[in-house]
């Protein structure tokens, strides 16, 4: 059953000056619980596609349906609310809040969702334990390694039990050991939590781990293979 439906998406930057076609009619469907990698060379439109799927950017044309909601018709406030309730983001540069501790960072999204303190703390500690960094709960991001920070970012993304996790080059700044460890954790979370993972990446290790690989070139889907 498709949980993500993108229909003929185009994205043109600077369309009044020198148009840059980032996406040229991308159509794809992703089922619940999939572990999908979007791959392709730099500039092929991976990040643009991920941003549009995540409601961070608007397509020039086409529609995106997430969990039966046409997000292209939502206004800014509705989109923020939708993202908060349904989407977890993992960014290349971790993007943790530097002034909050590991625990507080994981709790942050749940705080925005107005969940109780007890509930937040229990969920955050559960995730940090699963990520193997429970002992770092009271440390600030600057006191963690890159791999540890990205694990916190994944924990934060999963904290609110979103339907989708969108990860933009999550391993780009990690060494091979950290990458391997992080991928194992995300695969476990995919199985245990049932969250749908979509990565943009050109990291071969992520591609190998993915169960579906969508290849983009010049803003078009040129290959879509399931393992």
């Amino acid at each position: 059953m498709s949980i993500i439906k993108a229909e003929n998406i185009t994205k043109i930057y600077n369309h009044t000056v020198v148009p840059v076609h980032a996406l040229n009619g991308v159509t794809l469907e992703i089922d619940r619980g999939e572990f999908t990698a979007i791959v392709g060379p730099s500039g092929c439109g991976k990040t643009t596609l991920l941003n549009i799927l995540g409601g961070l950017d608007h397509p020039t044309s086409g529609s995106v349906e997430l969990a039966n909601t046409d997000i292209t018709s939502l206004n800014d406030g509705q989109l923020i609310d939708f993202r908060l309730k349904n989407i977890g983001f993992v960014f290349q540069a971790y993007n943790l809040i530097p002034v909050l501790t590991t625990m507080e960072n994981v709790e942050f999204i749940m705080l925005l969702q107005k969940r109780t303190k007890k509930d937040r703390e229990a969920r955050a500690m559960e995730l940090l334990s699963q990520m193997g960094i429970a002992e770092k709960a009271n440390q600030r991001p600057s006191q963690l390694s890159g791999g540890q920070q990205q694990r916190v970012a994944v924990a934060r993304a999963l904290a609110s039990k979103p339907q989708f996790i969108l990860a933009d080059e999550p391993t780009a700044n990690l060494d091979s050991k950290s990458t391997s460890s992080l991928l194992d954790i995300m695969a476990d979370m995919n199985r245990e939590e049932g969250a749908t993972f979509v990565f943009s990446t050109h990291d071969q290790r992520v591609i190998e781990k993915a169960r579906r690989v969508i290849t983009l070139e010049d803003g078009r889907v040129v290959k879509d293979e399931r393992k």
Partner: peptide
């Protein structure tokens, strides 16, 4: 990033 992850502008 904060707005991306669901923080309202007013917050």
């Amino acid at each position: 990033v904060l707005i991306s992850v669901g923080m309202k502008r007013i917050q």
